[in-house]
Amino acid sequence: MKILVCITHVPDTTTKISFTDNNTKLNKAGVQFITGPYDDYALSRAIELKEASGGTVTVLNVGLAETEPTIRKALAVGADDAIRVNAEPTDAFFVATQIASIAKQNTYDLILMGRESIDFNSGQVHGLVGEMLGIPSVSPVMKLDIEGTTAKLSREIEGGKEQLEVSLPLVAGCQEPIAEWKIPNMRGIMTARTKPLKVVEPTGKEELTTVTKYELPAPKGACKMIPAEEAEKLITLLRTEAKVL
């Protein structure tokens, strides 16, 4: 089975976000970048599927050269090779176009990615790619098994889940608990250095959205503390002051 895993390169979940250039650019100073946590689930499941029944795992990232350490990390946990589309991923439609173009050239059985990136949180790319390729897309997927050419999935819905079945090929947006996150070992890190990482130029330039300005939320006011002995007072305050009851 040929699996393509699309990964994002995003600020660590503990990052304090700030902007520069008159609020038009993320301030990257001191920010540690990681593989998107949802993408990590997708990658881990892909490696598990490969370990169980063979095949190859290719990692794909749309990003500038700065993302290569993140790509190498995916190779270190067990992906066979990688492709980087050399462009800034600023619009979901643009990114999906790149992924679909790579997928058309290589015909994968399974295209996995996170349910959403943790920078823009749009959760669009899996659906866009599925539609561009004319194949099914399912998200958010919390369980994925392959039997022959059939995928058996469980998709999270509000208050529960759906059990789904579909023939491959398929695009899936993944989330926990689809797999345990994999941590690269020493041998993996060594071999990752020599695994192929192909850099290709993007197809087309079309973007459907442009961010004109970023903004931080207004700072929270101080927390009003209520002594535990008078805990009941909270309920009165929620009604009369906060007006939420």
């Binding site: 600020p11 979940t13 990052t15 304090k16 976000i17 902007f19 943790i118 920078d119 823009f120 949180n121 959205t209 442009t210 961010v211 004109t212 300005k213 970023y214 903004e215 931080l216 939320p217």
Partner: peptide
């Protein structure tokens, strides 16, 4: 965006 940590004005 950034999981509630910021906003983006998107054209």
């Amino acid at each position: 965006i950034y999981t509630g940590k910021a906003f983006a004005y998107t054209e």
